[in-house]
């Protein structure tokens, strides 16, 4: 069970206070009507699903009810950072030398 730092509450809380909400930084197209069906499908359904560093959304469902972002390794489940909604990650797959166990 993850130990998650809520950037709004300012403390670590147990995973079962939160809900995972999928890949982060997916922007809804500003002009949906000019999107092709492929582009709309990409927005709705297609995901990176990386094996390694993942930027994902979580919501503090039984706490402050705020959404925030998390950078987590989807293999080791190590939480590398949390950052508020609207911010950008400091740690990315490109910036980090990924080592250790698979």
């Amino acid at each position: 069970m993850f130990h998650i730092y809520c950037p709004y509450c300012g403390e670590h809380r147990e995973e079962n206070e939160f809900r995972p909400k999928g890949q982060a930084h997916i922007m809804r197209p500003k002009d949906p009507e000019s999107c092709s069906d492929e582009e709309w499908a990409d927005y709705l359904f297609f995901r990176d699903n990386p094996k390694g560093i993942h930027h994902e959304m979580w919501v503090h469902a039984t706490g402050c009810r705020k959404f925030f972002n998390m950078t987590r390794d989807t293999v080791s489940y190590e939480i590398l950072e949390v950052y508020k909604m609207g911010e950008q990650p400091k740690i990315t797959a490109a910036s980090r030398v990924v080592g250790g166990e698979k």
Partner: peptide
């Protein structure tokens, strides 16, 4: 409720 918060907080803050 969570759906409304999702859109407000992540798309239309």
């Amino acid at each position: 409720l969570e759906w409304l918060e999702l859109w407000h907080q992540t798309e239309w803050p």
